[in-house]
């Protein structure tokens, strides 16, 4: 065990920066194998799911809180950014952080009172929030375009129209690296340790001096901000959004990704997002059965590898790559 850790440290797999370097290398080399923009499009979708999952994993994997409404935050980020730029003419580069801040504050305001309670109240509240967001997006047609969706003009930077999906791949990849770096730093900080402490026992954590409601509310808000930013990138890159992207099933998909990848493992969240986002896209015949397949994956993961694919595989190889 001890030698294993030293060994992995020696090849710098265990060090956060080493793993970040490997992730960056993969993200840079990967496009060389993409024959056409279709693959860039899939990669962008994977990247955006991964950003949401990195945040959600902090909340669920580390702090042990379940959110059933993260698709709602994703959609708030997407619609908010799109509407600010369409209706008020705010540039996307300004609209995205403004909306992310608003979403973060909203999440914090919602989380503070709820997280004072124990148990699965957060799951219930986020479920409700997600459904409310979905209903508003569906019904307020004058604002959101309703179920038919909202088309968004390409972002302009001076004379240039930023509409090439390849361009957005690089932006999303860069932001994914930033998100992973932030998450890994958080995990290895006192704040991260207090999250893990309250996951195991809230009473023990509180006794040890952790402000439990505050820690939970902050990580909840942080994960909502990541989802919101992913939503903003989604409208920039895809230039179209529908309320289906805010639905309950999307939230369950995000949860399935982190459970499949490995709760409490940032890189597990990436692997889960990559596999579950890319498969239905690349294997077109599989797309029809997506929701059935996601259910089966969730059940099978719980039964056969409750810790998720990355930690399980990491143990198999005798190294703890996942953490």
């Amino acid at each position: 065990m001890a030698t294993g850790t030293t060994l992995s440290a020696a090849i710098s797999l265990g060090a956060p920066l080493g793993r970040l370097a490997i992730l960056s290398a993969i993200l840079i080399v990967l496009p060389l194998s993409f024959p056409n923009p279709f693959f860039f499009d899939v990669a962008v979708k994977v990247g955006l799911s991964a950003i949401v999952c990195v945040g959600l994993n902090l909340l669920s994997g580390y702090a042990g809180q379940i959110s059933l409404g993260h698709a709602g935050f994703f959609a708030l980020g997407a619609y908010g950014t799109a509407l600010l730029s369409i209706k008020l003419g705010v540039h996307g580069l300004i609209a995205a952080p403004v909306i992310a801040t608003v979403v973060g504050l909203l999440a914090h305001v919602i989380a503070r009172p709820i997280l004072k309670l124990k148990g699965h109240y957060l799951a219930m509240a986020t479920l409700g929030l997600g459904i409310i967001i979905s209903i508003v997006l569906n019904r307020e047609i004058w604002l959101t375009g309703g179920p038919d969706g909202l088309s968004v003009p390409a972002m302009r930077l001076g004379e240039f129209k930023l509409r090439a999906i390849e361009f957005w791949y690089w932006i999303v990849a860069a932001f994914l690296i930033v998100a992973v770096w932030l998450a890994e730093n958080l995990v290895n900080s006192p704040a991260g340790r207090s999250l893990r402490a309250l996951h195991s026992s809230e009473i023990a954590a509180a006794t040890a001096g952790v402000d439990v409601p505050r820690a939970k509310a902050l990580v909840f808000a942080f994960s909502a901000v990541l989802a919101s930013i992913a939503g903003a990138f989604f409208v920039f890159a895809e230039r179209f959004i529908t309320p289906a992207d805010a639905g309950f099933l999307r939230s369950v998909e995000f949860l399935t990704m982190i459970v499949f990848g490995g709760l409490g493992s940032t890189y597990g969240a990436l692997v889960g997002a990559a596999i579950l986002t890319a498969l239905p896209q690349l294997v077109a015949a599989f797309a029809e059965y997506k929701h059935v397949a996601i259910g089966i994956v969730l059940i099978a993961t719980m039964i056969f590898m409750p810790r998720g694919i990355v930690p399980t595989l990491a143990d198999l190889f005798g190294r703890r790559v996942g953490r």
Partner: peptide, 13 residues
């Protein structure tokens, strides 16, 4: 399958 995101992927394809 009526999924807009899927439709966009197929369009690109």
């Amino acid at each position: 399958a009526g999924d807009t995101s899927q439709a966009r992927s197929f369009a690109l394809r």
